[in-house]
Amino acid sequence: MTRTRYQQNLDLLKDNVIKIGEEARRSIDNAMISLENLDVDLANKVIEDDQAIDELDDSIEKCVHQLIARQSPTAGDMRFVTSCLKISIDVERMADMAVDIAAIVKRIDEKHARPITEIIEMGTIASLMLQQSIDAFKEIDPELAKETSKEDDKMDELFSSTSREIIEMMTNDKTIIDNASHLLFVLRYLERIGDHACNICESVVYMASGERVYLN
């Protein structure tokens, strides 16, 4: 093998993208647990943990810039390096959504109504989509990426049906408007997390084959 240092930098970049994916997934899971249990301490932890994720995103960006400036990656390497940058941006935004959900948890002060079941289900799918898209990146598996993106249809359906349900509940009982509108935001954040997971899947397909696909 030639270009040993170059390969080491590429390996380090890959490890960091996998790591930021794992950290973001933990934040999403914690945000959903904190929502389910109205656990303000856990919500605060999600908010605090975001700094480490932002720093990881910064270090990935620096690593990409250094690789481009010093190693001039081409072909598969170029696709890998540019995809890492895009994936990192998507993951960082997903972690921000987890923070937004955690911030909402701190504002909810009563027991929620029934739609929480669907919201938790969306959280589970969002977390799984992130995990699978990062697995697809790790294994350079475009088929897994394409499969994962199909989950987004479920997310969109749940978003649409659950938001209708919440609006109906708000219409029937005006005393829950505060909490219910918070929950609408949570739905929106989870739906966006699904979209970002699709973006990651698109990056994986491009990275693996050079093919530009739209999976969202």
Partner: peptide, 13 residues
Amino acid sequence: ESPQEKSTEDYIT
């Protein structure tokens, strides 16, 4: 960006 042959990829990278 996307060479078709592995030897091309190996050379330019």
